[in-house]
Design a protein around this nucleic acid. Structure first.
Lengths: 349, 349
DNA sequence: ACGTGTTGAGTTACCCGTAACGTTACGTTA
DNA sequence: TAACGTAACGTTACGGGTAACTCAACACGT
């Protein structure tokens, strides 16, 4: 007898069969009641629900997915790290949206490592997720093959890409770097510095640096880079990176940082050694974090709609799950925040 | 025949049966090869692996869990929000550790709402997770019932609790607030302010405020509270909360904030209106975020081992999954950072 | 040539739900 | 009262793996 619930199942949880038996109905009837599918009397419904409560039955969605050949309600989301506030915000945007539509986020921190990402993709795909959101556009060949073969909605976020594997939402990091470079060159700075962390891989920060570098080149400026290997891009790193950069190149007039946190670290360092901002040195960040707006100086930066990126990514996945037509690539753009940490020479001391 | 793979399965993925057929072996043999369980010849292994690669087979872990009556490798982790850097760090600590041991984090943002948490618990339990980590110790009755009945490792984090539902790691928030209150009273401040966000529920921030309040009371001080309803505890909130508090009570000598971000917002406000810190007013935060160390002033704060909380929580879950004996409650403590934003009156202007 | 042990591989029975279909009980209508 | 419709519920067959068991083939010592 297939409904036999007598021998308790392997993880001694209450199964549908046990509820059904206790209620004196068949598994199928109990299932219909629980799914409120109709085809049962009120009396039956009541009997079943009493037992559900009494036994503390919790449905096993694994079995549902299995039986129905459906996808799960999981959406895999890979993010490089959470130490970076921006990524945390993107993740929050994603999870809020997904959660509101009954989906769950399965997290993967890749730590900017492609191999890490590949391994995570393999694992998460084995759980039959309903969709995938990955940060960045560079993946290992095997990862690309798996993503292609998965047959589920996929969104690459952060780095805008006009020909994504499936869908994409982000911004053009090269352009944002170029934009900042041109802006600073327009302030008639000529000797530039860049402070960031290790860029082994072709990631978004590298694209920003390349764009920045190109703009400086186009303006016949000079650029000194200070890359801190294997360090997290935070306040300390910005502080010490600036110290190192200025120790090596005393004549630098303006510094562009990988992100706002590092820029604020740099700002504090310049203040500590008595350099005035922007009179003696210009400081520019990237990301426009809340902290940047509350500093004594309004930090010159690039504002990025991070929450929006997360939300749109989640919406794209949800729409495709529901079979709605989806625009496959969305550029959310960026906005240069002039701030008060850079200035024209006429206005400088 | 149970191995018949002829009709492709419902989500047209490659199944083990298809691999087995292509390799000319039984499902079971293919399964053994993939799990490297032994009981097959090298020749057989090669045949199977060739087909695995050729067909791009990815295992279906749903089926594995289902068949084996095992738990999944999911660990549900509920966090109130990610806007707060500390929680993001805790989450990072958890996911790093879990990921290193082949587990996946299923995220749940509760937004400090117990009902939200209850709903999330129900959903995540239906996926048969291997363990659960939840933030905070106050749960709805139904949530408690579900957690009790789940029969999986459970860690309540953040708020230390000597009699947890199962396991617990965190710190005593009341004590940390009391500690700060006593420290400030020792600086001979007498008129205190508190700036935080809405405390409908009995959460950790409320406990801190209560502890602080008690210490002030014990020292015969006066305390004015400024609670901003339904706002996120960030820089802006600290900035405007301080404005409101000082507008109503001009004689306040020292302010304690719900967290460092808010304190830094307050610090900026006091500077904006020309108050000197700590001469005119004392400022104290909570959490000791990296940003606090890099400010012009070293912020007086309470340092909390956030990464450690996440790591220990993950370790507790992993240990219990592996059947190892686990200490059920761990107080990670806190450390008062004297900083330079409060001072004895003799040293004040 | 024979029994025996070892090893490789097949069989069967589940796991827990759901879809599809079959059956029963009862009410309606001619 | 036979014939039929329909609501309510039961039965069966998966789905993709795994555990436990069975069986066949072969090497080996005697």
């Amino acid at each position: 007898m297939s409904d036999d619930p007598d021998k308790s199942n392997r993880n001694n949880k209450i199964s549908l069969a046990e509820v059904a038996k206790a209620a004196g109905v068949s598994k199928m009837t109990a299932s219909r009641v629980l799914r409120d599918e109709g085809g049962f009397s009120e009396k039956t419904r009541a009997k079943v629900m009493v037992e559900v409560d009494r036994l503390g039955y919790l449905p096993n969605r694994l079995a549902t997915v299995f039986a129905g050949g459906k996808k799960s309600t999981f959406v895999g989301v890979s993010i490089p790290e959470l130490g970076n506030e921006i990524f945390a915000q993107v993740l929050e945007g994603i999870d809020r949206k997904l959660g509101a539509f009954g989906h769950q986020t399965v997290l993967g921190l890749t730590e900017h490592e492609i191999d890490h990402e590949e391994k995570w993709i393999e694992t998460v795909l084995s759980w039959q997720p309903a969709g995938l959101i990955v940060t960045g556009r560079s993946h290992s060949p095997k990862a690309i093959q798996m993503l292609r073969g998965a047959g589920i909605p996929l969104v690459e976020i952060w780095d805008f890409n006009s020909s994504p594997l499936d869908m994409c939402v982000g911004l053009n990091h090269f352009d944002s770097g170029y934009s900042m470079g041109r802006y600073l060159a327009g302030m008639e700075y000529r000797k530039f510095g860049y402070v960031g962390t290790s860029h082994d891989v072709a990631n978004a920060a590298t694209a920003r640096l390349n764009g920045f570098s190109k703009a400086i080149e186009d303006a016949n400026g000079r650029l000194e880079k200070q890359l801190l290997l294997k360090d997290t891009p935070g306040f300390y790193t910005g502080f010490y990176g600036t110290e190192q950069l200025l120790a090596a190149h005393r004549d630098i007039e303006a510094i562009f940082y990988q992100n706002d946190n590092m820029a604020i670290g740099g700002l504090q360092y310049t203040q500590k050694i008595g350099l005035r901002v922007p009179d003696d040195i210009g400081i520019a960040g990237w990301g426009d974090l809340p902290i940047s707006a509350i500093q004594p100086y309004r930090l010159t930066s690039i504002a990025v709609p991070h929450l929006k990126i997360g939300q749109i990514a989640a919406e794209m996945v949800l729409a495709q799950i529901n079979g709605e037509p989806v625009k496959s690539a969305k550029d959310v753009g960026f906005r240069l925040i002039p701030g008060s940490t850079v200035l024209k020479p006429t206005a400088r001391a």
